[in-house]
Nucleic acid binder design. Sequence first.
RNA 1: GUGAAUGUAGCUCAGUUGGUUAGAGCACUAGAUUGUGGUUCUAGGGGUCGCGGGUUCGAAUCCCGUCUUUCACCCCA
Length: 430
Amino acid sequence: MNIQSVKGTRDFYPEDMARRNFIADLWKEVSIRNGFVEYDGPIFEYLAMYQQKSGDEIASQLFAFEDRGGRMLAIRPEITPTLARMVNQRINALPRPIKWFSSPRLCRAERPQKGRLREFFQWNIDIIGVEDCLADAEIIFCAADFLLAAGMTAADFVVRISSRRLIAAMLEYFGVEKEKLNAVYAVLDKKSKIPQDAFEKMLEEAIADSDKRRKILALMSVDSLDKLGGIAGADENANKAIDELKKLFGWLATMGIADLCKFDIGIVRGLAYYTGIVFEIYDKAGDMRAICGGGRYDNLLADFGGQKITATGCGMGDCVLGIILEEKGLLKNLAVANSIDYFVAFAEESLQNDALKLIAKLRRAGAKADFSYKGGALGKQMKQASAVNASKCVIIGQEYQTGQLVVKNMTDGSQQNVAEKDFFDGLRQQ
RNA sequence: GUGAAUGUAGCUCAGUUGGUUAGAGCACUAGAUUGUGGUUCUAGGGGUCGCGGGUUCGAAUCCCGUCUUUCACCCCA
């Protein structure tokens, strides 16, 4: 029977694994240097955990199943609920601030498209318990730090930042009913994704009153923080939100990444649980979906049965990121990183045992070493050494009778005879 | 979930109005090369033409279904 891979999944051959590890290793490295510590949870949880905070739409995109004990479970589609559960369970014992990161494998039964698969990895960084928008600035800095470390530049990407609090306050100030907020958010989120006339038409369907629509359109056309004041008038909540945004941009400037960030009132985020600062990172060149998205969520821990504790964070999936890094040529030459240090070749069949002893010694000493199973002509073995990207080749030949090894540099072709004892002494010093 | 396009070797692709045993480049294996690799040359292996059914004397080619991938919706935690 010919079995093919499941829709929306990927096989990771060694070269694919090298790319995946490049991303995962960098996520980890950047997280740690930004002061985050790693956590993880189970790959499946109770189905109810995801149904609780989500509608039927999201529930229908879960991989759910029943175990032999009749428990209804689901493979995790995100890790934030797990984070909330874990933090809630130990909230009184955890030192603050809580700065945690994870790179979980997630599954969603969505229709696969470019940059969206059914199984993927998503880097999550979260800061729990810090009210000041300095925490939001840190999240944004960390995400930007990663993209810069991956080789991207200010010319490649932009962090678009807005505030749910601001939009909520303004809509309330304009007289939009509270129960209509989520519907209006959904429309506003489309602002930069569809043509202007289509946007206005959608808004018209959501809001009947033309005066309110005019005000919303005026708000949505604002392209800088300074122009917001005039529209907000004396509304206290709106002005608080504006002040918070100004403070955030101040932090970002202090941290030296202001040139990567832009106020964009069209950033709303689909998810209902965001309550404050929200942001998304986009590739400037393509029209791909966001590389990264996140924001402040103040009610989530309470929603999962804990205390009301403020939190902020973001997620970055490996699908869109991988495509963009690939397009920009930033995932090249990764196989070389796995190359071995020493390829041991033996000139005669009778020297195979000596080669094996040397290999074992090299490996015990911590060097990456390999050899040819087949042996055969020295030329063949050298060929294999090149094929596996060995940086040096150790040849065991007639000189070995006097304890001499031939060490050849495979990059420049130079070689020299070295006594075995000196060779290992030199190895230890490295 | 809706609509559309796509599928030939591991990869990128040829393949005539339906006509003999489906090809190329790269990759892979082996040899040229019995103490020196990357280059080169030669040879070889590898395809139920995504899968299933239909039309036909005859199907990679035409028709239907199905799966995959991609695109536009829906959604995007």
